[in-house]
Amino acid sequence: MENKKNIAICGLDCEKCDAFLATKNNDDALREKTAQLWSKLNNVPILPEHINCEGCRIDGIKTYYCSTMCDIRKCAVDRGFETCAECREIDSCSKVANVFEHNAEARNNLNNCLCLE
Rank of each mutant, 00 (worst) to 15 (best):
I58W: 05
L110P: 07
A22L: 07
H102L: 15
A8N: 11
N103A: 13
E105R: 11
P48W: 07
A85S: 10
I61R: 13
T68L: 02
N6F: 13
N109C: 00
N108A: 02
R31N: 12
K5L: 11
Q36T: 05
R31C: 11
D28P: 08
A106Y: 06
C93Y: 03
S67N: 14
A22K: 09
N103V: 11
D78S: 15
N103C: 14
Y64G: 12
E89I: 08
E15V: 00
D78Q: 10
S94A: 12
K62R: 14
L114H: 02
C53T: 07
Q36H: 11
N6K: 04
G11S: 12
N52V: 00
D28T: 15
E101L: 03
L114P: 03
C75M: 09
W38R: 09
E89W: 13
A22F: 10
T34V: 00
F20H: 01
R88Q: 14
N109I: 02
N112P: 02
W38I: 02
F100Q: 12
E2C: 01
N98M: 04
A35G: 05
N26A: 06
L110D: 10
N6S: 05
F100W: 15
K16A: 07
D13Y: 03
N108G: 12
Y64K: 14
S94T: 14
F20Y: 15
E82N: 03
C66M: 10
C70S: 05
S67H: 07
F81M: 02
E49C: 07
R31T: 03
E101R: 07
C66D: 08
C17K: 01
M1C: 01
E82G: 11
N52A: 08
V44F: 12
C84H: 06
E54P: 04
E86S: 10
L110C: 04
E86L: 07
N43A: 13
E105Y: 02
A104T: 06
V77C: 02
L21P: 09
K24E: 13
P45W: 05
T63C: 15
K4P: 01
C17P: 01
K74W: 01
N43L: 14
A8E: 08
K40R: 14
M1I: 00
V44H: 08
R79S: 14
A22D: 12
C56Q: 09
F100V: 12
R107W: 01
L116G: 11
N112D: 03
A29I: 15
A22N: 05
C14M: 03
M69F: 06
C115D: 05
S92F: 00
L116A: 04
A22R: 03
I51N: 01
R31I: 09
K5M: 06
F81Q: 00
V77P: 00
N103Y: 15
A8L: 13
T83K: 13
R107S: 04
V99G: 00
I51V: 05
N26Y: 02
N103W: 08
